[in-house]
Design a protein around this nucleic acid. Structure first.
Lengths: 343, 343
DNA sequence: CCCAAAACTTGACACGCGCAAAGATTATTC
DNA sequence: GAATAATCTTTGCGCGTGTCAAGTTTTGGG
């Protein structure tokens, strides 16, 4: 490799014995130049290791190759995992994904959206904070940037939504629990940030009624994203004041369940479906750690890959459609029940 | 707010009744213009909502406001947490942090570094993969971009290193365990990806010898980043073949410990320091979930905030120094012992 | 070998802003 | 109120690439 540094495409074109416009064409679409020409460029590319200045490139483009991925809380392994998969898909598709986390704060989400607008991305995957989102700011963003909402739906916002079929999640866990023991009560936060929580509660109510069981919802207090601690404290409070109404608890999500299991352990309460167990616990999400709780957690799993694939597919057609869909589509992906030791 | 869209700074300057260079000065440093002028610009800003085109801005700046943050595996909550704090600090300091995860793959780490070079960042925080890193690629990157290594040290690479004082971590856990019961054996992966693992083993050997105890290292097989599963399987294998040499186990890191605790639970083996407990377990990192394991995990905690602060401080002085330090500094931050139920 | 089509070169303008020099206008100080 | 400093305006070049039009060369088919 030559030591000499290439300053711009002009120089590089000269070194490869071609004109700058031809080289420019190549970088925009390698298939648009004659094979022999492509080979010459690629040979030169190996020797001189030149990359077009992305700032100069994007200055004239109205549409960049950037794709934004915005999640509400990256320290939540569920989002880390889904972001990881989407990001990989973007790279494989030739896009430049940029990952952002709002860290649970509205202010930060707004800042991210504003900064992202300035990047002129080809498209954005946005999992909004939910209840804490600044709806006006999100709406403004969706107006300016082709956006696919995921995980957390906000009505009429973005060009499409890809998320979980919460009814499928709850139906499967409730069905299983009812089939194998007492009907579950439903354990959740009173004021959840995420709209999925409300959908899950409603699904629980419906499924229980359809099955002829009396639904019982247990709501605990707590704000923020420290779900495990909220679940742990809430469980202690419930156990201090008489315990759960049934011996079967269905948690709104795995992180609450992790806290619940932790509290049960602290009290010497055995959880599981065997003899000597005081409680059965199930949940939703298949959080990466739910395999390692004590006992391991029976849960309804997201189809991470399917969600990511559907997201990508949706964004592709959105980009091809020029950034707008005529009608907003909503895709809900069903769950997969995973039986483990807790229920 | 006027509906009319501002195309460029020229237009915006006209609308605020000023010249473009003055407005340009304002955006580069609001304090560099007269207060009266600033007010006029900010008034116009509220009415017209203009932002300089970042691509045009960065094209001419030799130094952008971008800061890269590269971690080896974002689905590991430890990295999610440290990245979160650093990112916030960057924003507060007026930088534009961009977060990347290599997802445990060398190929991806290389791609990230290449793409990051093209962004001409003011500086980069890099936590390399470690053993799996392409040393030549990392070296080349560090040559081109002002880099502060963190978490995982690679000799002589980057302008500075900020990480954990692994000796302090191990010293505190070993001391505590020896003081309160049997000296621990050391539980780790045979071929760890992260250099900290080796430092911890060496520290264990030294501290044990200094205390006059015989060190015992237990190594389990496994590749990749699924530490919990590796720890769980490894523990089962050990328990199948006679068990640990002592009733006290010190894990190299919390994620292995989570797997170990999971395996113990599956076998009905009680962990903790009370009567009827078969095993004491301690570890290192204060992983965000170690509070909720069963039992909760005694561990040596990273000073997340201190590490992040030191990282920022180092990058600031690096940027001020023009991207190069005359001598490479290494900062090691000691641990804080956190006593919980497992030991 | 000729001819049309395809692919290339040449030359030039555009993008939006940083930056610098020179002159004009304000603020500050004594 | 004059001298000085600070700030602003005007003018214009430069950054590296996209893109276009016109002209030139190469390619492939008959």
């Amino acid at each position: 490799m030559s030591q000499r540094k290439i300053r711009n495409m002009e120089q590089f074109a000269a070194l490869s014995g071609l004109s700058r416009p031809t080289v420019s064409k190549y970088f925009n679409d390698p298939a648009s130049v004659r094979p022999a020409t492509r080979e010459r460029i690629e040979a030169a590319l190996e020797r001189y290791d030149f990359r077009p200045n992305i700032y100069a490139v994007n200055q004239n483009r109205s549409l960049t190759k950037n794709v934004g991925i915005v999640v509400p809380y990256l320290a939540d392994p569920f989002f880390a995992e889904i972001a990881r998969i989407i990001q990989r898909r973007c790279i494989d598709a030739g896009f430049a994904p940029i990952l952002y986390s709002a860290h649970g704060e509205m202010k930060l989400e707004n800042e991210i959206l504003e900064g992202l607008t300035a990047l002129k991305p080809a498209g954005v995957f946005l999992a909004p904070l939910g209840r804490l989102s600044d709806r006006a700011a999100v709406a403004r963003f969706c107006r300016d940037v082709p956006t696919v909402l995921f995980d957390s739906n906000i009505e009429d916002m973005g060009e499409a939504f890809v998320g979980s079929d919460n009814h499928s999640f709850v139906e499967q866990t409730v069905d299983y629990l009812c089939r194998t023991g007492a009907p579950p009560c439903f354990f959740e936060m009173r004021t959840p940030a995420n709209p999925n929580a409300n959908k899950r509660r409603n699904a629980y109510l419906r499924v229980m009624e359809e099955a002829g069981h009396e639904p019982r919802v247990v709501q605990i207090e707590g704000e923020g994203w420290a779900f495990e601690e909220i679940g742990r404290r809430g469980t202690h409070e419930i156990l201090d004041s008489g315990g759960f109404a049934t011996d079967t608890v269905l948690c709104s999500n795995d992180r609450l369940a992790i806290g619940l299991l932790s509290a049960c352990y602290e009290r010497g309460l055995r959880v599981g479906r065997g003899d000597g167990c005081a409680l059965r616990v199930a949940s939703h999400d298949d959080h990466p750690f739910s395999r390692f709780t004590c006992p391991s957690l029976t849960t309804a799993a997201h189809e991470y890959e399917a969600v990511a694939d559907k997201c990508m597919e949706t964004l592709f057609s959105l980009i091809e459609a020029g950034g707008r869909f005529s009608t907003r589509t909503e895709t809900l992906i069903p769950a997969r029940l995973i039986l483990r030791a807790s229920a």
